[in-house]
Design a protein around this nucleic acid. Structure first.
Lengths: 151, 151
DNA sequence: TATATTTATTTGCAGTTACAAATAACTCAA
DNA sequence: TTGAGTTATTTGTAACTGCAAATAAATATA
């Protein structure tokens, strides 16, 4: 196996570079990378319970609980106790959260656009499609693994 | 912008899923994810100074310094003080490190193979190529940013 | 040769993370 | 309607992380 063909390696370095690129932008508004993931998820998908948000952001649920604590302190999100089920909270953006997200979004989009400046539309679509397919493959197997443990 | 087309999102969830998949394998031999990254890098590329290893693994250099501390304690790597330049160390695998790496490698390869089971050879090659291209685009811009600061 | 500057790595510190256990609230069968 | 089992979230804890400052060694400059 060669390092340069090992997918976890290729994916990790791209992911880390994305983080390095966006971090200075986030610092300007006092937001950390995890909070940013939560912000986009809520902005795009609307209010979510913690569990769904954990799934959506790939943030471990106990970590997420504390991320939400920080975000609440900064008035970026609100925890709404469920009416029908008082165990779960709906997490939603506050007006501040929405405003901060809208400040960051165009700059994040610009970073992505510049990173993919050399890509044709077809390549870009292909990359997204393949990353989606890879995720499905990984997620499927993860389910199987759970099934094996359970059954 | 839609979440499902945002590259940092797509990349992050794949990366996290890779971590979830490999973690139980690593736990069996008492190795954490960062140490695993160092192990493969050294195994594939041979001894490296800390700085180069930081670049290669995308691990922050001060974090890496401590990762190497853990690995040294477990006799996975060795720090060799440079002969010509006593500031730098060459980090290399010990025999234990090599053995542990060779224990994990086939299982890591199997995980990757199963995750990409539905991929044609062409798709797999395309994905790797596009991830490489994306990284170049990111890295190039990062250099530019540094240049702007410097000059 | 002494001094300033640069480069490679480590360390202080304050904050973040993940695992497992705890809490809190719901469901359902007896 | 009670209590066993389940689900959603938080918290205790120990370890990990990244920034910035410190150290250590090399190189350049006067």
């Amino acid at each position: 196996m060669e390092l340069g063909t090992y997918l976890p390696y290729l994916v990790n370095r791209v992911g880390q570079q994305f983080i390095s690129d966006i971090t200075p932008v986030l610092s300007e508004v006092g937001v950390d990378i995890q909070s940013w993931r939560v912000l986009i998820a809520l902005y795009q998908r609307g209010g979510q319970p913690v569990g769904a948000l954990s799934e959506l952001t790939s943030i471990n649920f106990s970590t997420l609980s504390r991320v939400l604590g920080r975000m609440e302190k900064k008035d970026l999100i609100r925890r709404l106790r469920g009416i029908d089920d008082a165990r779960s909270f709906t997490i939603e953006l506050t007006e501040t959260g929405r405003r901060v997200t809208e400040t960051i979004l165009p700059r994040a989009a610009a970073l992505e656009a510049r990173a993919t400046g050399d890509f044709s539309e077809a390549e870009l679509a292909m990359l997204r499609q393949l990353l989606g397919k890879l995720y499905s493959g990984l997620a499927d197997r993860a389910d199987e693994a759970e099934d094996r443990l359970a059954g």
